[in-house]
Amino acid sequence: MMIYAILIMALGAVVLGASLGFAAVKFRVEGDPLTDKIDAILPQTQCGQCGYPGCKPYAAAIAKGEADINLCPPGGADGVQKLAELLGREAKPLDAEEKPKQTALIDEQRCIGCTLCIQACPVDAIVGAAKQLHTVVDPLCTGCELCLKPCPVECIAMNPVGESLDNWKWKPPVFTLQRQA
């Protein structure tokens, strides 16, 4: 009896192993699914603070095991946590300071319409034509700060995103646990 049981289990293992191997070959996904999964977690600010020229390259570097998971400041501790979960690693503290979300604002009095900020913005959040006043389209700005440096007249400033009825959230109740006597 025992031997049959072992044989059946062994056969099962072989069949399953073979089908898994077949599935791996047959259903292989083009591109690198891990990079895409990591990229889906990254905030897409495209700021380069991680040391890579954008979120996708950083994702690729993590996937290859070349970069640590705690280098993206805009993603914050939350982002590190999610990456750790995805990759089955230990979460660790962020290797930078966490900043509140900000957006850029162009001082329209001082803007000279040089178009340098438009060229710097990785996500097309600035509109304006040459020699015309430029504006940041607020909902599109990811707060990457890449437009600050190129501006020759230093007329761009970052402002923290305030609370509004559109992003307001209920706070968790303050937990007042009573000690049992």
Binding site: L42, Q44, Q46, G54, C55, V123, D124, L140, N167
Partner: peptide, 17 residues
Amino acid sequence: ERDKKAAESARARFEFR
């Protein structure tokens, strides 16, 4: 959900750019 949507649209604009 909002953050995710914003990130997705930022990625699309980044790639387009």
